[in-house]
Design a protein around this nucleic acid. Structure first.
Lengths: 357, 357
DNA sequence: ATTGGCACTCAGAGGGAAAGAGTGCTAAGC
DNA sequence: GCTTAGCACTCTTTCCCTCTGAGTGCCAAT
């Protein structure tokens, strides 16, 4: 069942209007649009049909129409216009991207804050590995007798560290030795390649630093197995700015709770691995609490087998085009930033940038 | 002006009731309490007086009374009963404290999540330095040609790292040399003690790794100057569970925004340095947006000149006694955990633990 | 095929009226 | 002289009713 051109136009218009007003759209409003040549009656007939097809919904008999989840899906897949960032928006974004490059994790959380601010929606960021992690370098530093800091460098320029306190005494010499052993035998191995045999061998070579070995190994394995870094979620409260949550503190709270728990741990796994942009519309979502809530996410390459993900969470009625554009701009520039390694802001403006909000 | 015993009892009762119902308290409700021997009329007279003294407030003429900020303050300072954790509560808390000791920063954020969950309020955690930070150890690791990771260990067992990308080529040898120079000349110095002179000396000794020096130094100084670690704020949404924010999404949003920005950066500075527990009641607060919002915070010692802070944010009408007790328990046990360094949960039950919610 | 017209529906706004909770004050009681 | 019962008064909250208006569906005319 194919839609006619007119039906597409009407569906598109309804989504566009509803997205910015959050109110059901009536036939008159459509008819009043400059490039609509038909009367409200015609529109009404078409709307009735679109409703029957399941693309529109009617909150109650005497209200206008709102897009159904299927309607959104169709809109996203076929009708959505590329939104061009306005000059103002690009400027703000470019400025925003001039982050002091800090520690990596902090930067991701910074990026999240920015995305949230720019979209006025809750945003999350994650860094995930694309391939198996391996250890690249071990370092053992003594801070006080019995107090040792283990610094572990992984592939992808990720550095982890952990404070280890040992009751037994270990000399600097022995630490150096152990570090050398670890660097010799444990680097460039994935979690699976670390066998019990290997562990024994290391323990034997470790001398009196042997009690340290299991602690180091546990930590190392834990780090290697971690498929993705911390998930940063910020700006949850911005969801309250959306009309659908205005006076529904309860609903908002539910969404937040789900976001906090389920989503953050599962989301990276749930999302399909391919394609840069993903949309999860309402009921397509994992958790039932999120049925009126949608997710837009975008991947970008960090290099070294790492991949960043930025996304926003919002009401199903959100301005997908605009948000995709903003996320895209972020992702593109972040990717570029990481690619050419020097932490300079990439001031690349998208062409055609004088349309406004 | 001293309060009579009866006035104290009435004020205390009003706070207690208001704290759990969030509704103005009438004279009848007080008179109905088991250990109140006076009629509602008498209570009314006393309430009128307390109102005149500025300890109570009346939302409107025909409503009951609620405590004024001054009333809360007096309650906290003089009337508050020690809340004893119930057996159930201690059990839950003890379980909760069995954290896998992870990287320090992550642990603080974990603690925040727990505190928030236990109190059902937004919670924040920070680690602050008590004295000047100094660098303890430098490490430079080459990951790829031109790509170097700087690992910096500070006093207080804090480890920071940063990825530095350099266009010039530096050999492993030169890196080792530079690290040695840094370790020799830059450790155990506070930020002020790092002079331009010293910088020059280091640059001279660095050989062809000299271009690295300013990058390393900037980062080091940045770390040294950082008085406190990341402020973790979690569970913001729980504020919505409080009746005063139920249908006031707007207000909640304002609070959140303020929390996010102002508070998180200023709070550690604003709070007085002494005493383990601090209360900031409503208008005593920094930001105007938080005038109906109060903060309870508690310090605990981490050792090595570091201090942890945990706190919650809630409506001014909150159960200070209960929250203080919970925070106290957390703080005490966290302190103990850090003290005796082995990451075991300390299962110390407070005496007398069979009262309930 | 499109459109103007019209009857119909239904959510939401507005406006009292009634209910209910609580007060302050007065006068009686211990 | 403190305490208390009683009562008139105040003011918010709730409920119900009506009215309005936006929007629909359908029919007949173009």
């Amino acid at each position: 069942m194919e839609l006619t051109e007119r039906q597409k136009q009407i569906l598109g218009a309804i989504v566009d209007i509803y997205v910015s007003t959050a109110e059901p759209v009536g036939s008159k409003a459509i008819a009043a649009l400059p490039d609509v040549k038909y009367s409200s009656a015609t529109i009404r007939n078409e709307m009735a049909e679109l409703t029957q097809m399941g693309l529109l919904e009617q909150p109650h008999t005497s209200a206008g129409r709102i897009p159904s989840p299927a309607g959104y899906r169709l809109y996203i897949d076929e009708l959505m216009q590329d939104y061009r960032l306005s000059l103002d928006e690009t400027r703000t974004l470019s400025q925003a991207l001039e982050l002091k490059s800090q520690e990596f994790d902090k930067m991701m959380s910074q990026v999240g804050k920015l995305v949230s601010k720019m979209t006025n929606l809750p945003a999350y960021t994650v860094a995930t590995r694309q391939n198996e992690a391996v250890a690249k370098h071990f370092d053992l530093l003594m801070t006080a007798p019995g107090s040792i800091i283990l610094v572990l460098m992984l592939s992808g320029d990720v550095v982890k560290n952990k404070l280890v306190k040992l009751p037994v005494h270990v000399t600097e010499q022995e630490l150096k030795l152990l570090a050398a052993v670890l660097n010799a035998s444990l680097t460039d191995l994935t979690a699976e390649q670390v066998t019990g045999e290997l562990l024994e061998k290391i323990t034997r070579s470790a001398g009196s630093a042997a009690p340290l070995v299991p602690l180091v190994l546990d930590f190392t394995l834990e780090c290697l197995r971690q498929q993705h870094g911390d998930v940063h979620l910020t700006g949850q409260m911005r969801l309250l700015g959306q009309p659908e949550y205005r006076d529904a503190a309860e609903k908002a709270q539910e969404v937040f709770e789900t976001l906090d728990e389920e989503m953050l741990t599962n989301l990276p796994a749930v999302l399909p691995k391919d394609g840069p942009v993903q949309f999860l519309v309402g009921p397509e979502n994992v958790a039932r609490e999120l049925k009126d809530t949608s997710v837009v996410m975008m991947r970008f390459d960090i290099g070294d087998g790492m991949q960043g993900m930025i996304g926003v969470v919002g009401p199903t009625r959100m301005d997908y085009a605009k948000i995709t554009a903003k996320l895209g701009y972020f992702a593109e520039n972040l990717g570029r930033m990481f690619q050419k390694s020097t932490p300079n802001p990439p001031p690349v403006l998208p062409e055609g940038s004088e349309n406004e909000e």
